[in-house]
Design a protein around this nucleic acid. Structure first.
Length: 269
DNA sequence: ATGGTCGATCTTCGA
């Protein structure tokens, strides 16, 4: 059987509900993980999402900021949102797939929205950057302690870890998302958690891969100054099952797009 | 060193 999992920072699920429908129709993943739903719980468009063919939907939200959701064709055996950095920030939700998922039953799927970290890459001067580093440190703890269940980690991790995950390694070394303290933290936690970076497993460097293009670039497609901020990782026990990774770059060209595009990994076992 | 553009919200903050 195959299992496909997509991740997408939607930057307001209410504003872009039609684009969620379109993406689900075109990609047809088994599971879609959304970040930045920007939606308080009592406004979450649950019925609309279920109507797109994904009856199993869980989310944590808050007013105006953050928010993560998981949509699935399969039921969940367990749902575990988790708080990080002693805040109730709606930056993580995890599910365990139920027996209806067949050979994927018992798989854990973790959906993260890592803090962006503000503009100044100095934790002493910028509390947002300090928060980001603390969040990554807590993820490292979590990765090192996690159980041995087959696990998929996805999300907007807000770090472009490798040289060719950004349009200019040199010019972005001092830019939040690509500073050495962040890239080393993300790579360390990934390795300690024994996770495979799916996109890079199939498309090694020096091929450039981007999943995000700033709104501030007037001609984003021609300039192509992107960064790879959105990731799909699988635990190493799933390594032999990875079949493909798709970066749905065309979604950046849709009307009133998110600044991030969907990323989909397909496993087969 | 700064601006550029978005989205949610309540005139500014976070990205």
């Amino acid at each position: 059987m195959k299992l496909s999992v997509s991740t997408w920072n939607i930057n307001s699920v209410r504003l872009r509900i039609d684009q969620v429908e379109r993406a689900l129709g075109e990609i047809a993943p088994d599971v879609l993980c959304l970040q930045e739903t920007k939606c308080p719980d009592n406004c979450f468009p649950l019925k609309a999402l279920q109507g797109f063919g994904y009856p199993h939907v869980v989310q944590v939200g808050q007013k105006g900021y953050n928010g993560v959701a998981i949509l699935s064709r399969f039921p969940f055996a367990k749902v575990e949102p988790q708080n990080w950095c002693e805040r109730q920030d709606a930056r993580h939700i995890a599910v365990t797939l139920g027996p209806e998922a067949g050979e994927a039953a018992g798989f854990e799927i973790h959906n993260f929205y890592v803090p962006a970290g503000g503009d100044v890459p100095d934790p002493e001067l910028n509390p947002k950057f300090k928060h980001k580093l603390q969040f990554l440190a807590e993820m490292r703890d979590w990765a090192g302690r996690r159980g041995k269940r087959p696990t998929i980690v996805v999300g907007d991790l807000n770090v472009a870890p490798l040289e060719h995950d950004v349009w200019s390694h040199k010019q972005l070394l001092d830019v939040v998302s690509h500073t050495p303290v962040e890239t080393e933290a993300l790579e360390t936690l990934r390795q300690e958690g024994a996770f495979i970076d799916c996109a890079r497993h199939l498309t090694p460097e020096p091929t450039k891969i981007y999943t995000w293009w700033s709104y501030r670039s007037p001609d984003w497609a021609a300039a192509n100054k992107g960064r790879r901020l959105d990731h799909v990782w699988i635990s190493d026990d799933l390594g032999s099952t990875l079949r493909s990774v798709d970066i749905h770059g065309d979604a950046r060209g849709w009307m009133r797009p998110s600044d991030h595009v969907p990323v989909t990994a397909t496993l087969e076992f």
